[in-house]
Design a protein around this nucleic acid. Structure first.
Length: 199
DNA sequence: ACCGGGATGTTCT
DNA sequence: GAACATCCCGGTG
C-alpha cells in the first residue's frame, strides 16, 4: 500500500537514510512525517548509534524486539515503552549497523481532528505530538508499523521534504530519559518550537 | 507551578 | 526481580 504525495513534496529516498544517525538526525528536522491522512513536521529528534552506544536498544545485539534496526535503512522501528506507549525510530546507516533516529516531537499539520480523537488527554494542539509516546498515539502508529518501509510508503507511512530547509542553527542537547551515555549531545530540536517535549 | 506514583511488555541480572 | 529512549493524574503550594 503506497501513499500519494502532494504537489511540491518529495518523499525521502533510501540514500538519505543510508548515513550515520548523527548525520541524518538534524536533517530530519522540518521534514514531514505522514501516517495515512495525518501528518506533522519533525521538530525534535535523538540519534542512537547501535553497537557503539550503550543507550541504544541495539547495544547488546539483535533481539526479537529490535530486529528491524539491524535491517536496511529507511524502515520504521517501533517499540513498546514502559509497557504503555509506542515510540518510533527511523533506521539509518548501512544494513547491520542498527543505528536509528528517535522521533521525539512533531508540529501537527494535517489530520488534527483525528489526532485529538486519538488523544483524549490533549487540550491544545501542542499536547498532541510533544513527546515520543504522544506523537505515535496522535498519528495512530503502533505495533503494526514496526518494519514499515518509509521509502515506499509501506503501510501508509513516509517522510517528505516540502521545501522547508532544516534550521540553520538547531539546538543541540543531551538525550532525554536515559541513564547511560548521557553526555553525548545527540538530541536536536527546532529553536522556539512550542511542540518540543518538556524536560 | 512542582512533585510522586501508577500503568506494565521486553529485556537482562 | 529490576530497569526501561514515557505519560497521565491527583496531590500540594
Amino acid at each position: 500500500m503506497s501513499v500519494a504525495t502532494e504537489p511540491g513534496e518529495r518523499r525521502l529516498e533510501r540514500a538519505f537514510y543510508r548515513r550515520p544517525a548523527v548525520d541524518v538526525a538534524p536533517e530530519l528536522l522540518n521534514k514531514v512525517l505522514w501516517a495515512g491522512p495525518r501528518a506533522g513536521r519533525i521538530v525534535e529528534v535523538e540519534a542512537y548509534m547501535g553497537s557503539h552506544d550503550p543507550a541504544s536498544h541495539a547495544f547488546r545485539g539483535p533481539t526479537p524486539r529490535n530486529r528491524v534496526m539491524f535491517g536496511p535503512p529507511g524502515h520504521l522501528y517501533v517499540y513498546f515503552s514502559y509497557g504503555v506507549h509506542w515510540c518510533a525510530n527511523v533506521v539509518c546507516g548501512e544494513e547491520g549497523e542498527a543505528s536509528a533516529v528517535l522521533l521525539r516531537a512533531l508540529a501537527p499539520t494535517e489530520g488534527i481532528e483525528a489526532m485529538f480523537a486519538a488523544r483524549l488527554a490533549a487540550r491544545r494542539p501542542r499536547d498532541l505530538c510533544s513527546g515520543p509516546g504522544k506523537l505515535t498515539q496522535a498519528l495512530g502508529i503502533g505495533r503494526d508499523h514496526d518494519g514499515a518501509d518509509l521509502v515506499s510508503g509501506d503501510r501508509g507511512v513516509d517522510v517528505r521534504d516540502d521545501g522547508t530547509a532544516p534550521p540553520a542553527a538547531p539546538v543541540v542537547a543531551r538525550r532525554v530519559g536515559i541513564s547511560v551515555a548521557v553526555d553525548r549531545p545527540w538530541r536536536w530540536y527546532v529553536p522556539g518550537d512550542p511542540n518540543v517535549s518538556r524536560r
